[in-house]
Simulated scan of single mutants.
Amino acid sequence: MIIIQFLEKPSERKLLLSWREPARCNYTEQLWTLRKAPNATTCALSGEKIRRGDHVYSPVGQPLNRSKCIRAEAVQLP
């Protein structure tokens, strides 16, 4: 089970979050950026389908969770 905690939104296109995936990876402060999904996949937060070209947040760099995406519409921050 993946545990995601939103920490802050430093800009319109960036998110800082905590990502915990037992037995795989743990990132206490991971930067994610807004982009278009390169492939069809599933949102790590909502479980909804993501189509190629949808706006998603994904991790910056080459972390172990680099293939994961979060639908931009699923992010609800004050």
Results as ranks from 00 to 15, higher is better:
52 R>A: 10
16 L>I: 15
41 T>Q: 15
1 M>P: 13
69 C>A: 15
44 A>S: 15
13 R>D: 15
20 R>G: 14
31 L>Y: 03
32 W>H: 02
69 C>K: 04
42 T>S: 14
53 G>K: 03
34 L>V: 06
34 L>D: 08
38 P>C: 05
15 L>M: 12
40 A>L: 12
22 P>H: 02
25 C>K: 02
10 P>C: 06
49 K>D: 15
52 R>P: 03
24 R>L: 05
58 S>N: 10
70 I>Q: 01
37 A>P: 04
11 S>C: 11
26 N>A: 03
35 R>P: 00
16 L>S: 13
57 Y>I: 09
78 P>N: 13
29 E>C: 10
8 E>M: 13
63 P>D: 00
3 I>R: 02
10 P>S: 08
77 L>C: 10
33 T>R: 11
51 R>P: 02
38 P>Q: 07
48 E>K: 14
3 I>N: 13
70 I>S: 03
12 E>F: 06
31 L>E: 03
39 N>A: 13
23 A>D: 14
30 Q>T: 07
21 E>R: 08
75 V>K: 05
43 C>V: 10
44 A>L: 12
68 K>F: 04
63 P>T: 00
27 Y>Q: 00
40 A>V: 11
7 L>D: 05
54 D>P: 04
15 L>E: 06
8 E>L: 12
75 V>I: 12
19 W>L: 05
73 E>W: 00
57 Y>F: 09
5 Q>L: 09
40 A>Y: 07
49 K>H: 14
23 A>T: 15
22 P>G: 12
77 L>P: 08
67 S>W: 10
23 A>C: 15
71 R>P: 01
22 P>T: 02
24 R>P: 03
50 I>V: 14
7 L>Q: 10
45 L>N: 06
74 A>W: 00
5 Q>C: 09
6 F>S: 08
46 S>H: 07
11 S>V: 09
51 R>K: 12
50 I>F: 02
61 G>W: 00
26 N>W: 00
4 I>M: 11
37 A>D: 07
25 C>D: 05
1 M>T: 13
52 R>W: 04
3 I>V: 12
16 L>K: 14
39 N>D: 14
9 K>V: 15
38 P>M: 07
2 I>A: 11
58 S>H: 08
33 T>H: 09
53 G>T: 00
60 V>R: 04
72 A>L: 07
3 I>F: 13
76 Q>A: 15
75 V>D: 12
10 P>I: 05
75 V>F: 04
66 R>F: 03
26 N>Y: 00
37 A>R: 02
55 H>V: 01
28 T>F: 07
58 S>I: 01
41 T>C: 14
24 R>K: 13
70 I>L: 06
11 S>H: 13
6 F>C: 08
45 L>S: 12
44 A>M: 09
20 R>L: 10
73 E>Y: 03
48 E>S: 08
10 P>R: 02
64 L>C: 05
54 D>N: 02
28 T>C: 11
44 A>Y: 00
59 P>N: 06
14 K>P: 06
22 P>E: 07
50 I>C: 05
43 C>A: 13
31 L>I: 06
41 T>S: 15
53 G>P: 01
